[in-house]
């Protein structure tokens, strides 16, 4: 995926470019709104990561300009302002998603692939990751043809992993997905649910699919 990063902060921009490139994306880094507008209107990118506070203009103006040109490239906004209104303003201006600083890098990757997938309109009733299959209409899960019984929370968790297979998902993303809650406590409320899910989809099988990535989160990988 070609990603255009619009970010004036040197350290964050550098980290974003390196991270995206290491994740297998091509990355162009624009440090101001004017350059960003030129690159975006050239339609050379598949997704845009846009900081809202730029040295020469407001990120939202860049976004409106891009949309006014009829360009529908998915856009993820980065900002330090996180209130509900600001989020709504951003989404109304034509953003596809919204990330509040500080954010975790896996979350950005996951959201990037989510918005590009959304723009491709790939939705299916059946999800398959390696030996795992999940049917959204009948809510049945099977591994290697063996049916697995899951609680609603576990089902929702697995569905999220399968939709983002190969992608590291952070605790925050999982918690928001399950309980649409930005739980700000220190208690790790996800871990136990992961352990339980693992017990059902991995314990009796080989190889393990749901892996812990230290310091980052969890990933479901079809080996």
């Amino acid at each position: 995926m070609d990603v255009l990063v619009v970010e004036d902060d040197e350290v964050l921009g550098k980290a974003l470019r390196r991270g995206l490139e290491e994740a297998g994306h091509r990355c162009t880094w624009a440090k101001n709104g004017e350059k960003a507008l030129g690159l975006a209107t050239a339609q050379k990118c598949d997704a845009l990561v846009l900081d809202l506070m730029l040295p020469d203009c407001q990120g939202l103006d860049v976004l409106r300009e891009i949309r006014a040109h009829g360009i529908r490239t998915p856009v993820i906004i980065l900002t330090a302002l996180g209130s509900v209104e600001e989020r709504v303003t951003g989404l109304n201006a034509g953003a596809d998603d919204y990330l509040i600083k500080p954010f975790s890098f896996p979350e950005l990757l996951a959201r990037l692939s989510a918005v590009s997938r959304r723009s491709l309109n790939l939705t299916s009733q059946h999800l398959n990751v390696g030996p795992l299959s999940l049917d959204l209409s009948t809510r049945r899960v099977a591994r290697d043809g063996h049916e697995i019984d899951l609680t609603p929370t576990e089902f929702s968790l697995l569905e999220f992993f399968m939709r983002n297979s190969g992608q590291v998902l952070t605790r925050k993303m999982l918690s928001e997905h399950l309980w649409d809650s930005d739980w700000e406590g220190v208690t790790n409320v996800i871990e136990v649910h992961i352990t339980r899910l693992r017990g059902k989809i991995d314990r009796d099988f080989n190889p393990p699919l749901l892996q812990t990535v230290r310091g980052r989160g969890y990933v479901l990988r079809a080996v």
């Binding site: 929370t153 309980w179 790790n188 871990e191 136990v192 352990t195």
Partner: peptide
Amino acid sequence: AKFELVELQALVTKAVDMFSGVAEA
């Protein structure tokens, strides 16, 4: 200004679900 009608029982049900794992563990 940001107030809206909130179904408290939904919040409580979700919170109990959220912590059920940790509690059980």
